[in-house]
């Protein structure tokens, strides 16, 4: 299958799962009622369910997946490592820290947008720090280690906030949010994150030729004419914005950013540039499907999307790691 064929198939799949997500849910609604709601000929209740609950939720899952998938593919290209992911540079963790901070102080009740704004602020601060490091070092290992440090620090700070939570309710709030979910996301939640995500994705797509060149290694990529410093800066910024916006919408959802590029890569000639778009689409489709599963599973309280993603993703992640050891190292 060619890259464009793959993209076409994935776009089709995306449309199918998004529509399917609107037909499925905990409120029993027959297909004719959903169709009527789509066409604007249904009672207020029905169109509310479809237009304001199911569709925004499905779209949220899709764009979050797409942002994480594209960021993962770009990071893997930049760091030349199939285990890199949006979280690897500590941007996700910092975004989570921002949101947790706001929840701790209860700002979330005073101003609904404070959580997304704080998450994007956290992500931007982290990516700015990483960008600063990226300009001053020529070593990718240093970059990753700074990311690990940043992740650990953000994790420690979050644990501290939860440790000191003033009451069980704010603790529950933070835990819920950290688990990652797209339940009850509104069009407004999407709209606030959308510009950041759009700019982030646009930057990532603009760097794609450079990602191909980095296949050769940094020095040889410079040899064929890559401006390495600018490339690093752009990928770090793009990832920061896209991942920050994703975390702002859905909280922490791991592993899709690693797995989607891994599945896509062999089908596009192992070219990081050509794996960017299909990784985004596939990760979006996967998250929408996972979210449909979450809604349909007959559990006493609804499972969180992040939990399900981790349960599927972590074993696959380990499998990829072991395979890699067998083949290359």
């Amino acid at each position: 299958m060619t890259a464009s064929g793959l993209n076409l198939a994935l776009v089709t799949a995306a449309v199918v799962v998004l529509v399917a997500a609107c037909f499925l849910g905990t409120t029993p609604m027959g297909a004719p009622r959903v169709l009527a709601a789509f066409l604007g000929q249904a009672p207020v209740g029905d169109s509310l369910v479809v237009w304001h609950i199911r569709l925004p939720r499905a779209l949220a899952a899709f764009v979050v997946g797409a942002a994480l998938g594209a960021s993962g593919a770009a990071m893997q290209g930049l760091l030349r490592n199939p285990l890199a992911e949006p979280g690897v540079l500590g941007v996700s963790a910092s975004a989570s820290l921002g949101a947790t901070f706001v929840l701790y102080y209860g700002f979330a009740d005073a101003w609904g947008y404070s959580v997304p704004v704080a998450a994007i602020t956290g992500a931007s601060a982290a990516s700015a720090l990483i960008a600063l490091v990226a300009v001053h070092t020529s070593s990718v290992v240093t970059l990753i280690l700074v990311g690990v440090g940043l992740s650990s620090f953000a994790g420690a700070a979050m644990s501290l906030l939860m440790n000191l939570a003033p009451n069980p309710f704010s603790l529950a709030d933070m835990v819920n949010w950290m688990l990652g979910s797209v339940a009850n996301r509104s069009v407004n939640d999407l709209a606030l994150a959308a510009p950041f995500m759009a700019i982030g994705l646009a930057i990532l797509f603009a760097t794609r030729r450079g990602l191909s060149a980095l296949t050769l290694g940094e020095e040889a990529a410079v040899g064929v004419g890559l401006d390495l410093r600018r490339q690093r800066l752009a990928v770090v910024l793009g990832t920061g914005l896209a991942t920050g916006a994703a975390v702002a919408i859905a909280g922490a959802i791991g592993f899709v950013g690693i797995i989607a590029p891994h599945i896509v890569r062999p089908r596009v000639g192992h070219d990081p540039a050509r794996s960017l778009l299909p990784s985004a689409l596939l990760a979006g489709v996967v998250l929408v499907l996972a979210d449909i599963a979450v809604r349909l599973l007959p559990t006493s309280s609804e499972l969180k999307l992040g939990v399900v993603a981790a349960f599927i993703g972590a074993p696959v992640f380990i499998w990829i790691t072991l395979q890699r050891r067998a083949v290359r190292d």
């Binding site: 191909s212 296949t215 192992h270 050509r274």
Partner: peptide, 22 residues
């Protein structure tokens, strides 16, 4: 970093002319 095809790797030599793989 990745097991690209030979032709793709050679094509990276055209990076400075704006070539995109594929």
């Amino acid at each position: 970093a990745w097991p690209n095809t030979v032709r793709d790797v050679v094509a990276l030599g055209r990076f400075a002319y704006g070539a995109a793989l594929g």
